[in-house]
Design a protein around this nucleic acid. Structure first.
Lengths: 188, 188
DNA sequence: AAAGAACCTGAGCGACTGCTCCAGAAAATG
DNA sequence: CATTTTCTGGAGCAGTCGCTCAGGTTCTTT
């Protein structure tokens, strides 16, 4: 419901507007990747996107709106990837790859995802997003783990694995991550 | 090694200085609890601690130093509590209580702990701290889980549980958290 | 062609930021 | 006592911040 927000932007003006909106969100993600969420400001993002500062204000009245939009987009992206993992022939291995990817390329997305969680603890507007992710992970695990209590534990482990890999000084090994995940899912 | 940094502050001046240093760190934690890490600034902390702004600069040359000090102190605190859990008659239940506590009282500490992780991904100075926490959790689990791969999974789950409970819209139930943890530790 | 909607922007205001500097108070040391 | 070290805090500088606003351009519709 969040991904399909724009039905048909037939109007050329609106289309251009939405293009710029996306451009700003992408610039924001680049800033987050480079210098962290704290570095995000209207002026910095404007410079990154090569647009005048007031353009940022135009599309996102407050910085907060920009942040929420970027973090939501990031969540969308992650959930889509998670769904792809589900459809893959070896879902657990695909998930391990996704976790490891969050270390190198897509680093900004992992950072943003966790900043989203932290922010959601304080901003009610973001709580549905955090919930959406939790539901996504649960849906991913449901086919493999029947018991809800056990599933809750493994779901928490997935989040924790993302975090630990993201913070690790050197990129983790796919095999190791897969081994840990497989052990959890198989219930030992 | 981090906790016992001050051997014997015999000098009364230094003692007063260290008292104020602690006072500033505590004020910082209060600010984090109330408005998040982003709200931490020299002036805000100074006002919270009821000292002139320059006093903050005196004890912590840069804001970053204050942040690192506060986050390190928080980590110390958490590790100590984790060790207490280990020594308790029912360690897993004690851990569950610690997790739930991070939702209400001690909320700032949970927030700070995760901000610490996020920051450690970018600042080398903080990486030993993140590692210290990971080691602490591993040490907690070692007596209960022999296999290192399984232990890594459960350790990640502990981190994830902290995060999920912290972000949950309503405080989690101790029994539920305990059930999840017990299932993980018992290896199903 | 006229009207109106959507988009765009440069200038700028007030508030806050990190940080420096320096003169003086307080306390330990000789 | 005088000296040295530590601590205190007011003033202030240069920079960034979020955000407003008035007026402009571009495109669609009538």
């Amino acid at each position: 419901m969040n991904t399909a927000k724009a039905p048909v932007p037939t109007d050329g003006r609106r289309r251009k507007g939405e293009r710029r909106r996306r451009l700003l969100i992408e610039a924001t993600m680049r800033v987050i990747e480079r210098d962290g969420l704290a570095a995000v400001s209207q002026r910095v993002v404007a410079h990154e996107a090569d647009v005048p500062p007031s353009a940022v204000t135009y599309y996102f009245p407050a910085v907060d709106d920009l942040l929420v939009a970027a973090l939501t987009a990031c969540n969308d992206d992650y959930l889509e990837r998670l769904a792809e993992c589900s459809a893959s022939p070896n879902p657990v291995r695909a998930l391990a790859r996704l976790v490891v990817e969050s270390t190198g390329a897509r680093r900004a997305y992992a950072a943003a995802e966790y900043e989203l969680f932290l922010m959601s603890a304080r901003r009610p507007a973001l709580q549905p997003e955090a919930l959406r992710w939790a539901d996504g992970v649960d849906a991913f695990l449901a086919p493999h783990i029947a018991d809800p209590v056990e599933r809750a534990g493994v779901a928490a482990a997935v989040d924790g694995l993302f975090l630990r890999c993201f913070c690790a000084p050197e990129p983790p090994d796919v095999e190791q991550v897969h081994a840990v995940l497989a052990r959890l899912v198989s219930g030992q």
